[in-house]
């Protein structure tokens, strides 16, 4: 039995310890905002926060989740997160939208550690998240917008 917190709520998992966190979130907790796209940690669509750090939930087995604090897109509540989502809407970033939960989770994690990231730091934080619709220019604009507003 594995105990963990998801979006501030205590959860218990009793299944196959090899099962990645992503499927626990999606299928058992119905938190479907985190997406499956590659399953090998190469695209970032499944990004969630693990003790505040962005991780690829498709590649994190449940066996590593004991005592973990997980946050998904559904559980975003911090002022930074709210600002990021607002900037995302103001810049009209989304296209198909499938990658965007992961993009937002990566961006929020970045800005929560560093409200004034340099362009290079933004590159580094976001390069693991593929957007096949290539909304990258607006993602950058939204991160910069959030950074400006959070710093103000």
């Amino acid at each position: 039995m594995i105990k963990l917190k998801v979006n501030d709520q205590q959860k218990v998992f009793r299944g196959d310890p090899d099962q990645p966190l992503l499927w626990f979130l999606r299928e058992e907790l119905s938190l479907t905002g985190s997406k499956y796209a590659c399953g090998i940690g190469a695209c970032g669509a499944c990004t969630v926060h693990f003790n505040g750090v962005p991780v690829r939930s498709c590649s994190m087995p449940m066996s590593a989740m004991s005592g973990a604090e997980i946050r998904t897109i559904e559980g975003l509540a911090s002022p930074v997160a709210k600002q990021v989502q607002m900037s995302w809407q103001e810049m009209d970033v989304v296209q198909c939208g499938y990658c965007q939960s992961g993009q937002i989770m990566s961006a929020v994690a970045l800005l929560e550690r560093n409200t004034k990231p340099s362009s290079k730091e933004i590159d580094e934080a976001m390069d693991g998240n593929i957007c096949r619709c290539a909304t990258y220019q607006r993602i950058r604009a939204a991160i910069e917008d959030s950074s400006d507003k959070l710093g103000a």
Binding site: S30, T32, S34, D92, V93, G97
Partner: peptide
């Protein structure tokens, strides 16, 4: 005009085939 699907796609609420239960 802002995209009409922007709010649900920035909050993880938009439903795709993968999400159907």
């Amino acid at each position: 005009i802002p995209r009409i699907d922007s709010p649900e796609k920035t909050t993880g609420q938009a439903t795709y085939t993968q999400d159907i239960q």
